[in-house]
Amino acid sequence: MIIEYIIPRLDFSAAGKASTDMKHRLTQLGLPPALIKRVAIAMYEAEMNIAIHGDGGRAEIEISKDGITTCFIDHGPGIPDIELAMQEGYSTASEEIRDMGFGAGMGLPNMKKNADELIIQSELNKGTTVQMHFRLPAGEP
């Protein structure tokens, strides 16, 4: 099953809808709450990154027997230094964005902490693709 979400640019009313929708879908599928929370948190951070930094974009979520794979794609400015962006507390968010409660510099670290695999591909002025995989615990359908 593949589910697609469109993530609008700087729309803070809509941002976060994909992750909360997915949280409820996964709950309906009866997956373990701890796994659902990890997926929802990592997706939320990726979603906010696209809304804030990526000029908007889209998310594709695949649910299979191997687990949950999320792919976040934007055509924004790209990340110049991924290693630096991975550091806790590092953020390029504007003062205006920080006033709204974002830009703590915990987005990518939160994704890394919650996903079983995280792959970031980024090219300057072309965009960024963030792929995350979450394994299902043994014995889950």
Partner: peptide, 28 residues
């Protein structure tokens, strides 16, 4: 007031005190 910090550091079912009033507080 930083929702990413809430996401990073909260483990239990807490009460959240915040001065931030936007829909992201509810999503968090």
């Amino acid at each position: 007031d930083l929702m990413s910090d809430v996401i990073a550091f909260v483990k239990e079912r807490v009460a959240l005190l915040s001065g931030l009033t936007n829909p992201q507080v509810l999503r968090t």
